[in-house]
Nucleic acid binder design. Structure first.
Lengths: 203, 203, 203, 203
DNA sequence: AATGAATGAGCCTTCATTCAT
DNA sequence: AATGAATGAAGGCTCATTCAT
């Protein structure tokens, strides 16, 4: 791993935990074991570091959804696959997802938020396509498509992101069963699939 | 409105927009039209101001859920009522909700987060009761209760909170139809009710 | 003296000695016996402190030249009076003059330099008037008016400003006879008057 | 031109424009098209680069004055020649002269300033000799010799150095007639010669 | 000889807070 | 009760310099 990447990893961790304003370049440098000046040296500024982080992780998020839409014919099957891909993705990058989510909470529009919005939007549109297609094929009921997407994103985020709350609402012992566990991930997939099936087909 | 409350209102607005670290007491004092020293004077510190804000708004959120559980007999009916109350509550205090949500994203445990967790938890438990009761009465299917709660919270949050994203995903023109509109609120209620009915009863 | 003025006085001293970039707000605050934050508090920024300093001293420089032109009839007499006023002024504010002079050496145009130029220009124009009038009245020879002004300014600056060099070129013991001495000031006046008389009238 | 000299040329330009503290080694390296580390590599430090620059240019300034004093017999003639040499010298190295001038404004004594003083002093002494000789031969009037030297230096500096101000005081269009023009140079020589003749001989 | 990476010190500014009134 | 002045700490960033290659 290059030093640049190393900084980005640490940045992701700290920003996920404390937010952008809550993370000082000094804290960042300390945790990354580098000099403060290196942040400016590599990225130009703290803001640009953030942009670089978004760019760095955006790649992971951009792929694969399109593929699904082409290969699988049955809409319900495709929704299942999407859920699987989506859950995997978010669980694997839960820290970055936390950052994205936080960004969404800000009403201020920055260079970054535009970028982030576009990433999320692309995913959302892919889901939208399936839903519309399923509806046209009379396989899905007529549902509020946009809110269905919001439900998918919101539910998954809620499960993945709010450790503290979730662990208590959900009755999970955060020490033994966490977001990092395979079982937890599967439980999430199963729940979402069932939910969507009922919601979309009523069966 | 007392000066104290006036400060709290402004604090809510700014913190909802820019986060806790992103909001300086100077900006706050400027917007509230008071002296900087007043924040320390009234609340002791910025942190304590935040705690006071949570306390100030928590009252709104704490009431009414219990009532519903006592008065209404039919579990499905009760779920509907809860959704209505919950949606109304969050739409009415969407700024504060945004703050709560952001707090949940933080893994740092503060005095505040404990407080906030308790508020949210109480609500969640009320919902849990209905779900369990409905299941015992064989009116509801057997579902993953904890994740169902997460779904409820997550979906509503997603709809209410991410103006920018939602407005684009959801296909809402943020100029004409926003979180402040009655129609938008009703649409949300309808969606959640249908979703839960399908999810819980399959019908 | 207010604290604001106190800061300005110290700023003048340090900037005269080390230049603007060469003077750190920390050094300034230390010498003025105040906190670093006070510079921003009072002036907004280091740059604005400089502007305030120019404004603060500009007043001293702006007055009095016009008066001379109205009251005295004889051009040569008026030139003498101007020299006296000019020498007094610069000797009294030699530190600020040093700053002005340094600013002139910069080719970068700032808000300040425009301001400074205007002050100097006004003085120069007043001198120009006398020279032209004297020439029209056939009292002065035909001379290069603009360069004559440059000579006046340049000579006086050289004498007043370059302590180290002057003290050695001029053969003055900087310990005993300095810019602060009355005799040195009178010597300067005498020199300039004689120089100008010869230059302008040839007698 | 060696790389070393190339750096020195760029350094002269930037330091003349922005002063020593106002010129960063980074800006310098960028403009010279070399690596930042090169400055330390070639010169040891920024200070030493400055010293090297003084040394580099000092050579130009040191020569020729002595020669004049030996070859020409008539003191007035010699003064004229000196003015010519001096004007030529300063106009040819006006950037470096700007640096010297700025240094004179500083009261801080550095290794450099000592060096610079010596250069200027040597020139001044050469002038002094002629003035004294002319006075002894009863060709020159009795004048304040030291101030006369200051006048010469100051006037020329003022004309050469303060582009912005001069161009406005002097009524020169900086676009068409500048320090680089032959005519401007000749005008300066003529002015100084006439001035000195009147001042020294009264004729 | 030459360079990109890295450093620690210092830059100016803003922070939340406290003090005197 | 309320405020302008003042503070020390921390903010992000740039500095001249050094290191390893």
């Amino acid at each position: 791993m290059t030093k640049r990447e190393q900084i980005l990893e640490v940045a992701e961790e700290l920003i996920a935990e404390n937010g952008f304003s809550g993370t000082s370049v000094r804290a960042l440098a300390a945790k990354a074991g580098i000099n403060v000046a290196m942040i400016s040296y590599y990225f130009g500024s703290k803001e640009k570091l953030f942009e670089a982080l978004v760019e760095y992780r955006a790649g992971f998020l951009r792929e694969k959804f399109q593929v699904l839409n082409r290969d699988v014919v049955d809409p319900m099957e495709r929704v299942d696959r999407m859920i699987e891909a989506y859950v995997d993705r978010i669980f694997s990058h839960h820290r970055f997802h936390r950052i994205l989510h936080r960004q969404m909470l800000s009403t201020k529009t920055t260079v970054n938020s535009e970028n982030i919005m576009n990433i999320l939007l692309k995913n959302a549109e892919e889901v939208k396509k399936v839903l519309i297609e399923g509806e046209q094929k009379k396989i899905f009921r007529k549902v509020d498509i946009e809110f269905t997407i919001a439900m998918l994103i919101g539910t998954l985020s809620q499960i993945a992101v709010s450790c503290m709350l979730s662990s208590r609402i959900i009755g999970v012992n955060p020490q033994t069963e966490t977001i990092h566990d395979e079982s937890y991930r599967e439980r999430t997939k199963l729940f979402l699939k069932n939910l969507m099936r009922k919601h979309l087909t009523g069966k």
